[in-house]
Design a protein around this nucleic acid. Structure first.
Lengths: 124, 124
DNA sequence: TCGAACCCTCACATTGATGTGAAGGTCAAA
DNA sequence: TTTGACCTTCACATCAATGTGAGGGTTCGA
């Protein structure tokens, strides 16, 4: 598929698909006329990228962790340098911290909404 | 405490403490000489703000949800307009999505690290 | 009373993720 | 063959979070 379809199917501006490529997050094939050519797998890939970006990870980090998350659980040994592993451990920690922070605050919001509803519903 | 101590205790540059104030996330008292004056509660507050920022929430949103998260679970009725509640519901959803995305990817990284270790340890 | 270590405001710079548009090539259908 | 809807690259603009520093006041101890 070309960039327009991928854009529609992922809800991502073309501009950003090109940006993610520029940042090395995705690598598109090229048709003979120079157009980018994507296969189905890019849909999930792009959604994953967007999710991670939305959760606060910078493209630099996403680029590092993406190769470890490919469907066929292949260990890319060439990537598994000590520095790489250290980076992953570090990100693992940071992501866990994020999850905890988000969960805690999300629960607090949920509680708040519950409380608000509790003071309203009885009057109905 | 003054800004320097709050900065040290939260690991946050003074610049940012002033920025958070400018964005309406915190409101500092002032000493007679114009210096900002913070009490203990600001330490947790600032750490919470940093956590949420790190998790991808913009100050605009943080400002909206912070009042609902105060320790004494007080419902701020003046805030509880229908729009406000809708915003909170929306953020609740978005935060849940973020948590799911982060958890999923974090688990995948953990699995990857496990797998790498599994192929190494046996040779030791 | 001087210097160090604080604090203030103001303002410009940078970075990463985006928006927007210009200038131009490709292709299919009328 | 022309029009419209695609695509390309390039470049400048914006926004939020953050860095940095100038220019200046306060406080305290040597």
């Amino acid at each position: 598929m070309r960039i327009g379809e991928l854009s529609e199917r992922t809800g991502t501006p073309r501009r950003l698909l090109r940006y993610y490529e520029e940042q090395g997050l995705i690598v598109a094939d090229r048709l003979p006329n120079g157009y980018r050519d994507y296969d189905e797998r890019f849909v999930d890939r792009v959604l994953q990228i967007r999710g991670l970006l939305d959760a606060g990870l910078p493209t630099r980090i996403i680029k590092q962790i993406l190769p470890c998350l490919d469907k066929p659980r292949v260990i890319h040994f060439q990537d598994a340098t000590p520095e790489m592993l250290a980076t992953l451990e570090d990100q693992l920690e940071r992501m866990t911290a994020r999850v905890e922070c988000l969960s805690r605050n999300r629960d607090a919001i949920a509680e708040y909404l519950e409380a608000v509803r509790a003071t309203r519903a009885p009057q109905a």
